[in-house]
Amino acid sequence: MPFTSTFVLHLRKRLAIGRLFIVGLLLISMVGCSAMGNSNNKQPKPEPDLSELAHRAAQQMIASNPDLTRYSPMIAATFVSIDNLSQSSTFGRISSEIMASALAQQGMQVREVKMRDSMFIEESVGELILSRQVQRLSSQHNARSILMGTYAQGQDYLYVSTRVVRSGDAMVLGSADFRVKLDNNMRSLLEGQGGW
């Protein structure tokens, strides 16, 4: 076989191997870029749920007033709609229960009392006033404080304001606010609007 033919054959083999090598490198780089692109497009971290937010709020209350637990035992009132203070919902009832549980885990002694008509707001003044029934329930259960809360529905979030007040004079001992993503689950809890 003439030298030229052998040289050309050898050159073609090298070029074929070189092409395969380049194609391989291109494939590896495309896979790498794709993986990097996926790492930037990670799903966003899910928003915390009601329970997690209530527990954070309880921690915040205790952190801002470490003496809060001295005002034990505490009784809990159902959280009410800020738009109609004589109305609550499944959300108002469960958020009160979860918040009371979270405070109990932080060292607050909580008395189990299902309260009805436990508070009202003097709408013209906007101040929290404890009703006579709360005063009676507080003394009946030897409660030194009361958990109260309101919530408001926005377009994308449900806003919750909660506080622990001293039963004798309605002095706010601790408070916390948080917002919950308004998804279908939250909407279904709000549908049960009604009296206490």
Rank of each mutant, 00 (worst) to 15 (best):
I22G: 04
P73M: 02
M30T: 15
E127D: 09
L147Q: 04
V134P: 00
S88N: 07
N84G: 04
D83E: 08
C33R: 10
S88C: 02
Q60S: 12
K42G: 03
K13D: 05
V110S: 01
S72V: 03
Q140L: 13
E122F: 07
M30R: 04
V160L: 08
G126P: 03
I129P: 01
L68N: 01
K13C: 10
S89E: 03
L190K: 05
S101V: 03
R144M: 10
G154C: 08
R179T: 06
M148Y: 06
Y151M: 10
P48N: 04
I146N: 00
A143V: 13
A58R: 01
N40K: 09
F7P: 03
Q43L: 05
F79N: 04
M148P: 00
A54C: 13
G107Q: 04
S167T: 14
S161A: 10
F21D: 02
M36E: 08
L128A: 09
L189P: 00
S139K: 15
D49G: 14
Q105L: 11
S89L: 13
Y71L: 07
A77E: 04
L190S: 06
P73H: 04
A143M: 07
D67C: 01
G37L: 12
Q135G: 11
S86Y: 11
Q43G: 01
A35D: 03
A104K: 14
S138M: 01
S124C: 02
S86C: 02
M30H: 09
E97G: 03
V160P: 06
M1V: 15
L53C: 01
L103F: 06
L189A: 04
L103D: 00
A143G: 03
E123F: 10
D177C: 10
P46M: 01
L9S: 07
L85R: 11
M171Y: 12
